[in-house]
Design a protein around this nucleic acid. Sequence first.
DNA 1: GCCGTTTTCGGCCCGACTGTTTTCAGTCG
Length: 588
Amino acid sequence: MPNAVIADALEELGDLYELDGAIVHRVLAYRAAARAVREASVSVAALAREGRATELAGIGKTLQEKIVALIDTGTIPAAERLRAKFPAGLIAITHVPGIGPKRARLLYDELGIDSPAALREAALAQRLRTVRGFGPKLEADILEALETLPGQEGERAAPRILLPRALEIGEALARGLSELVPAGSHVQLAGSARRAADSVKDLDLIATGSEPARLSESLAQLEEIERVGSAGPAGARARTHSGVAVDLRVAAPEQLGNLLQHFTGSRAHNTALREAAVRGGLHVSEYGILDDATGISATCASELEVYERLGLSYIEPELRENRGELEAARTGGLPALIELKDIRGDLHSHTVASDGHNTIAEMAHAARERGYEYLAITDHSASHGFGNAVSPEQLRRQIELVREANAGVEGIELLAGSEVNVLPDGSLDYADELLGELDWVIASVHTAFGMSEQAMTERMIAAIEHPLIDAIGHPTGRLIERRAPYALDLDAVFAAAARTGTMLEINANPDRRDLSDVHARAAARAGVLIVIDSDAHRTATLANMRWGVATARRAWLSSAQVANTRAWPELRGLRRPRAADHATGRAA
DNA sequence: GCCGTTTTCGGCCCGACTGTTTTCAGTCG
């Protein structure tokens, strides 16, 4: 059972308990547990079967038992009991903006409203206002919220936007706001975009300056803003014409550090940070740090100061997910994160030989302009099936062309490579003899995504064990917000990669970022060497490398854990020995 | 329901905004 299914079940149970009037902390415990399950890098079902789900933060004895019941019987008894008590439509009502568990329960008890459709009907008939606490305005707001509710008629919720687009819009808003407000003001994009998350739900802006009210009012003047929903002295909430929610918060210049820290989040990081601070008699908010002992609230001009006052070393935004960074910051155990400038070459790129758009020479020059020392040309193999496949004969010719181009271009080493397909049976679609002529070989799965976990894992491990494979490309096949990873026992995959010395890729295409942050971290922990590749299909997308580095940073990786921070001669030495393998038949 | 350099019981972050209220509850981030 996939982690996502278990997480959904815990989430639903939390919603049901909330409707049932459970204390909020119990509900929050379920939501925290759901998050821990969703983000786990290993199979929680397997963990629970061994009685080890309690190793995950936020999962105790009770939830361990409930997860076992779920995987054994397909359901959790407590959820069954509550589902009998509350109609399914009631949970949907709690997801209507402006309606939470209390109001949903009240409407159900008083008016028998048990679905969004019944809610709409009652609102139109002006029956909601007969319930204590509801009035005409709330009734109208609910009707409007129902218009945009995803669901029954196949409507989609506002989709999360991928990081490049989020940064593009968010930085444009920050620039625009900066130009409107008085000199000395500071405007900056914060939130999950600053943490370089895979995708973001909304854009968080912070601003400091001598005229807070004016900062807040200026948001509405930006041409990108469609409307401002709510506004107060502390900030404003708005929406862009492209439908992206924007949250602006303002404070005084001396509070910049507090505000930026608060609004960069994540929520889990902030909550854990504040809970730990309270144990030390300190209360952290976006406005300062209140010391119980003195009654004085200290403001911080920088985030560094915020963390220092809490006895922590500075935590990079990418790490602020409550995945152990607070403990590491207490004990000096934070890693020195890899940076884009550490990358010395790109080992996955395409040309017109397959489905790329530029020639070898064009890609070479573009890579050199980026300051790279080497570039591997890795066009798709013979059975690719979409785009132009490269036959064995064409690959031989391509190797010659790469050698010629290499001789003709100064300042960068061109490597003859291929991105070969891993066929469903785990074999590759070029002969070993041909693969042996290449400088660099990536193996990727491009077909038959629907295999069982066991079959897919065997397929992947067969490729990993192949002596001529240097790295596995986009190992899980996910597309962010569009396609889940294929079923794979990643523990087994990481163990095989560590054992054989096969590298695993963080594919930097912003739609992929595969391995993910969580998976790349687990792989590196298992002893796997990571390679970050752009998978560029044209010169411009060599720049995608930055998204891969962002994922590596979120995975806690230092430059030493990433293969292509090394010069090519050194990296070549890290490739698996191969001539000897052929001679011995790789008997080990 | 989870969790422990004050606790195995009694806590569990902090604040903004809105609508409906006469001082606050609910929702949201």
